[in-house]
Simulated scan of single mutants.
Amino acid sequence: MSDVSDLSGLVIRKARPADEAALADLDRRTWAPDNSAVPRPAAGPHFFDRFHLPDHFLVAELTGPEGNRVVGFLRLVQPVLQQSAAHVRQIQGLGVDHAVRGRGVGAALLAEACAEARRQGARKITLRVLSSNTAARRLYERAGFHVEGVLREEFRVEGVYVDDILMARRL
């Protein structure tokens, strides 16, 4: 999988069932009202379920002499389970540990997601991002995503109406 030059020891790989507790912890720590329209994840080790399988996730893992540490994740799925949409993949969640933000982990996850989508036969990759999440929007734009649509005031998060921005990239 991918490596990042400014983060020695970073590896992007497919998730494994054994990653569940680390991913659940990271998901809770990275949740914020500007990046999610769903409530904060509940405490506990549960991350995977029948709709969120390990095969759907890429994991950013930092390896080193002290051991390995999960520092990011990305969920990649076919959003519409019809043959007519088999050429599309969607990113449905991306989280990066605050300790390594701004150092290329998110970009590495996006690059590997595009490569994985191509391996799966996709021609297009999409995502949805809250208008309040300006850091993620800049990351996606740098990775070649462009706005395809805006759902005005689609969510009300902590009393504030927020737009849902649809972005896409051709592969």
Rank of each mutant, 00 (worst) to 15 (best):
G95S: 15
A32L: 07
A37W: 01
A85D: 07
V96W: 02
R75K: 15
H146C: 13
D164V: 06
L10M: 14
L110R: 02
R119N: 14
A86H: 10
V4C: 11
E141N: 14
D27A: 08
V4G: 00
R29T: 03
D3M: 09
I165W: 02
E154S: 10
L74A: 10
E116N: 14
P65R: 08
R123Q: 15
V150R: 11
V38F: 12
D49S: 13
L26A: 03
Q82M: 15
S131T: 01
L62W: 14
V71S: 06
D19E: 10
H87R: 13
I125D: 00
D164Q: 11
L7P: 01
A37I: 01
E61M: 07
D25A: 09
L94K: 00
D163F: 03
L10C: 04
L58R: 02
I91V: 15
G95P: 07
A107Q: 13
R101W: 00
M167I: 12
V38P: 07
I165D: 06
I12T: 01
G104V: 03
G144F: 04
A86G: 15
E112V: 04
E66M: 07
G67K: 02
L151G: 10
G95A: 14
D19M: 10
H98G: 11
L23M: 11
Q83D: 14
V129S: 04
A24L: 07
D164I: 06
W31S: 09
V105N: 04
A86D: 13
R50C: 13
N68I: 07
A32I: 04
V100E: 13
V70F: 00
A86N: 12
R29H: 04
A15N: 04
V157G: 02
L110H: 00
L62H: 04
V80L: 12
R69L: 11
Y140P: 01
R69D: 02
G9D: 06
A60W: 03
A85T: 07
A168L: 14
F73W: 14
N68P: 10
F48C: 06
V88G: 06
L139C: 08
H146W: 09
E20S: 08
V4F: 04
L166C: 12
Y140F: 10
V96P: 01
A108R: 01
I125S: 03
L166Q: 03
V160F: 09
R29E: 11
F73M: 12
A99F: 04
A99K: 04
